[in-house]
Structure formats: structure tokens, C-alpha cells
């Protein structure tokens, strides 16, 4: 249990540093920004209680906000993504009952499960962040295009990170 807490703290710090130092500077075509810090929310253990999940997401978002000068933007969308997480897990399939150590990871839950899960959470996050950033429905389709493209882009980076930093064999 302690090891799990430690791993998550380490992941939090590492992902935030990567996000702030590197990913915030990545700007494909002027608006594609990979938000890899989402991976922290994605990889929290299945057993994380709801309130803790929300608070952790809020903290993560707020930290990113303070470093990007967009106070509240990432906090709001991270909390929304965390709020959707239990629903999404219910939708794509819960973890097997018998195994306490199973975590929502690529190598434990399989490629198909993780891809669906990550894609849905990322979409929730990007939908919220883009709507909030524009704060109106005037340019709706343009905003939706932004949502879809940046969801795929962030998703790509999340899959890449999962393969790079947890390269054990994936069971299918």
C-alpha cells in the first residue's frame, strides 16, 4: 500500500515536470498541446475513493494552471475528467474481482481496454477544457474540431508514455 502511494507521488511530480517543462512548449500547428498529466488521473488505483479522486484531480489541474497562467481552466477540466472516470470504467468493464493488485494500466488490463478507457477520459477532459476556454457556443464546430484533434493528439502521447515507461508485455 505504501509503495503504491509512493509510486503515485513520484508519478505526479514527474508528469507535472514533463508537462510544464516540455509539453507546454509543444505546439503543433499552433494549437495541439499534449496534456500528459492526465496520465496521473488515469493511472490512480481502482480503489481510490471518489472524493480523493476529485481532490487529486483538482490539485493536479491547479498546479498545471499556476504554471500556465490559466487559473481554473485545467482544474475544472481535470475534475470533470475525474468525475467521469468511474462511469467510464463501468462502461468499458470493471477490473476482475479477485485481484487487489490490478491497476488501470496498459499491461494489466490489456491494450483494448486501456485504449478505450484512455480515449474516453481524454475526450471528456478536452471537451471541457476547450468549451471552457472559448466560453461560448459561437464557433461550435471549430471548437469541436479542436476537441477531436487535440484528444487524438493527447491520446497518442499517453499511449506512447505507457509504452515507454511501462514496457512489460501486454496481455491481450
Amino acid at each position: 500500500m505504501n509503495r503504491l502511494v509512493f509510486t503515485n507521488i513520484f508519478r505526479f511530480v514527474a508528469l507535472l515536470l514533463i508537462q510544464v517543462l516540455i509539453m507546454n512548449k509543444v505546439d503543433f500547428y499552433g494549437f495541439l498541446n499534449p496534456y500528459v498529466y492526465l496520465l496521473f488521473i488515469l493511472l490512480l488505483p481502482f480503489e481510490t475513493p471518489g472524493w480523493l479522486l476529485l481532490l487529486l484531480a483538482f490539485g493536479t489541474g491547479l498546479t498545471v494552471d499556476i504554471f500556465s497562467g490559466t487559473l481554473g481552466l485545467h482544474a475544472a477540466s481535470s475534475v470533470f475528467a475525474a468525475f467521469m472516470r468511474p462511469l467510464i470504467i463501468k462502461l468499458v468493464g470493471e477490473k476482475p474481482e479477485y485481484d487487489i493488485t490490478t491497476q488501470p494500466k496498459l499491461q494489466q488490463m490489456g491494450l483494448k481496454w486501456f485504449m478505450t478507457y484512455a480515449l474516453l477520459v481524454t475526450f471528456a477532459h478536452q471537451l471541457f477544457i476547450n468549451l471552457l476556454d472559448v466560453m461560448s457556443l459561437d464557433e461550435f464546430w471549430q471548437t469541436m474540431l479542436r476537441v477531436i484533434v487535440s484528444t487524438l493528439f493527447t491520446f497518442l502521447f499517453i499511449m506512447l508514455f505507457e509504452y515507454i515507461f511501462a514496457p512489460t508485455k501486454a496481455k491481450s
Binding site: T70, L73, A75
Partner: peptide, 22 residues
């Protein structure tokens, strides 16, 4: 309903921050 309530509370805080700061 604590999950929903905390969610709404945190969203309220975030959006307030956002509106005041943007």
C-alpha cells in the same frame, strides 16, 4: 451524493477562479 456534491463544489471553485482571472 458526496461524490456529485464534491464534484459540483470543485467545479464551482475552478470556474469562479477562471472567470475572475481570465
Amino acid at each position: 451524493y458526496h461524490f456529485l456534491l464534491i464534484f459540483l463544489l470543485l467545479e464551482f471553485i475552478s470556474v469562479t477562479l477562471l472567470v475572475n482571472s481570465t
